[in-house]
């Protein structure tokens, strides 16, 4: 007996993502899914973001890593609520893991939730977590060819934060070429060059967040 299903393999993930999305919408929480390769500086960027914006917004962070509580501890030391998900070898966060972690938060008490995905430029891009925005972090030492080498990540993110621009004088990263490549993969995407270490360019990221938050609460 043959049964035709035509069911998306990620059906269960997508159901959980919808569950999350409804929760985020009903509590007017802005949710940003932050993705990058390991070492691009997601956690440092979040530390600086929490430092700069926590007087204005109530911020929480979900940290995804294979192991350890280190990143969540770093965020907590900045005064924000953080929950660590350890995937124990899993290469990405899925919507069910996020749904389980949401039990640790009172979303009514949170304005902005950052989800720091597992460091990986491949798998996380395929999983809807119910977020409002997917944002990629790319760092100068990785080289500007990563945008064309991992098009499936950059075609799905609407903002690329180019981190560690304080290293530009020492490395061969070509920012114009990166912008050009990005526009040819995803013309809607925006690239913001910044450095979480020197704070250069961070104001532009913060205004982007502010705009996204205002749109989120007006919906």
């Amino acid at each position: 007996m043959k049964v035709t299903l035509r069911t998306d393999v990620l059906t269960n993930n997508n159901k959980a993502a919808e569950f999350n999305r409804e929760l985020f919408e009903s509590t007017k929480t802005l949710v940003i899914n932050l993705m990058s390769s390991p070492g691009a500086g997601k956690t440092t960027l979040l530390e600086e973001t929490v430092r700069a914006l926590s007087e204005k917004y109530r911020i929480a962070v979900i940290e995804g890593d294979l192991a350890t509580e280190r990143d969540a501890n770093r965020i907590r030391s900045m005064g924000a609520k953080a929950v660590q998900i350890n995937t124990h070898g899993g290469c990405h966060l899925d919507a069910r893991m996020v749904a389980a972690a949401l039990g640790e938060f009172d979303l009514d008490e949170i304005d902005i939730l950052f989800i720091e995905n597992v460091g990986n430029l491949v798998c996380p891009s395929g999983y809807d977590l119910g977020q409002n925005h997917k944002v990629a972090v790319l760092s100068v030492p990785e080289g500007n060819d990563k945008i064309t080498k991992y098009p499936q990540m950059f075609m799905r993110t609407e903002l690329v934060l180019l981190n560690k621009i304080d290293l530009l004088p020492y490395l061969d990263f070509n920012v114009e070429e990166a912008k050009q490549d990005l526009s040819e993969i995803n013309p809607q995407s925006v690239l913001i060059p910044l450095s979480a270490r020197t704070n250069e360019g961070l104001h532009e990221w913060f205004s982007w967040i502010e705009g996204a938050y205002n749109r989120c609460v007006q919906q």
Binding site: M1, K2, V3, L5, R6, D8, V9, L10
Partner: peptide, 11 residues
């Protein structure tokens, strides 16, 4: 697309 198109089996 990433779908299960069909499966075949018996009882």
């Amino acid at each position: 697309t990433f779908q299960i198109l069909s499966y075949e089996g018996s009882s």
